[in-house]
Nucleic acid binder design. Structure first.
Lengths: 196, 196
DNA sequence: ATATGATGTGAGCATATAGTCACGTGGAGA
DNA sequence: TCTCCACGTGACTATATGCTCACATCATAT
């Protein structure tokens, strides 16, 4: 039998186990049995700490939202140049994708978006904030003369996030011939060229 | 009982029904029961025409691949300017997304990519061709002086497809505040600004 | 030391889903 | 017209999965 731990700790363990499962086998394979297996505990014990799958999904969304996507907002409030901020946001995001493939998979999972409306609402809100944050940085850069005039901040932000999102997708399907680091560097170099 | 039809016709009906289910409720909900219901036939009859779910997935992938993604290659071989070709490819793709939400959902579905490796392989190949096609058009445009010098064709193509892909995603999750037509026009206008 | 409540688990239930099978049935060719 | 075989279906099986429950066990407060 397992060593006993507090519910607080077990909840964290379960969320981490769930994220690991998603990264390895996808949201579709995020079954209670898989989580229990990854966390090294019985299925029944999962239910002692979470009321059900919905609650686990919510907890995962909260973890990802706060620890990952809140990151961009912090970077945006710094006092570096707009270009430096954008670059930091870009590569932070890529790094997260590379290290935790479960993150983009979960955020853009059909199971979440169509099967758990409450979670989807939370995530949609966060994505919206993320877009606005990046838009703000770009708008400041245009205004400050760092980026070329005439760009639309919002659409340029969507373009940048599209690059990131498409990279995540291609990594998921194994379509990245070279490694994600090199690929992202090439994409960023070209993006800088586009906005100047 | 249903009027009898040939297997060839029933197969087409079943594939269309499957695509409809995906568009309405996602790949996760693409059960034999749902397909049978959408196609107005019994579950057992599905199995008379397809050996199983795998074969239905393959048929769907073939349909989408040939009728949708082959489109870009045709456009690319025309004799219009590179910009016109790009624009046509862009809006054709957006139109498909708008009219058949099941298409992007299926192509980028975790269930397909992780659960049906053979289908995933086919789709990955097609996506690769698509990227190369767009890259070729952009390279020609740069060479012909239509787009600004110094752009990397491949990375610029990935950027354009990222925009499309991210738009599809945002439509799926209902994050498009305005309609997809207006949104895509704004994105395209900004993209033209980026590459000039 | 002991009682108590929080933590842990094997066994089992209900439901959903992929797939099978024996049995109709109707239309095309003889 | 009649036959035959491809087409159509209800009923069924096997398996997976979310979830419950009775029971075990351990830490801790008294």
């Amino acid at each position: 039998m397992l060593v006993k731990k507090s519910t607080r700790i077990r909840k964290e363990e379960i969320v981490q186990a769930a994220l690991e499962v998603v990264g390895r086998k996808g949201v579709r394979a995020l079954t209670i049995a898989a989580i229990a297996d990854s966390a090294g505990m019985s299925e029944a014990n999962i239910y002692r700490h979470f009321s059900g799958k919905d609650e686990i999904f919510s907890a995962l969304a909260d973890f990802i939202g706060s620890s990952v996507m809140g990151n961009a907002a912090t970077i945006a409030t710094g006092n570096r140049t707009s270009l430096e901020k954008l670059e930091t946001i870009f590569f932070s995001h890529i790094k997260i994708i590379a290290e935790h493939p479960g993150v983009p998979r979960f955020i853009f999972s059909e199971d979440v978006l169509l099967g758990h409306p409450n979670v989807a609402k939370t995530l949609t809100l966060r994505i919206g904030n993320y877009i606005e944050t990046v838009s703000g940085v770009i708008a400041a850069g245009i205004h400050g003369g760092e980026f070329k005039n005439g760009l639309s901040p919002r659409e340029t932000a969507l373009t940048m996030l599209g690059i990131i999102q498409f990279t995540a997708l291609r990594q998921t399907i194994g379509a990245l011939n070279c490694d994600i680091d090199l690929e992202s560097k090439k994409l960023w170099a070209n993006f800088m060229n586009l906005i100047n």
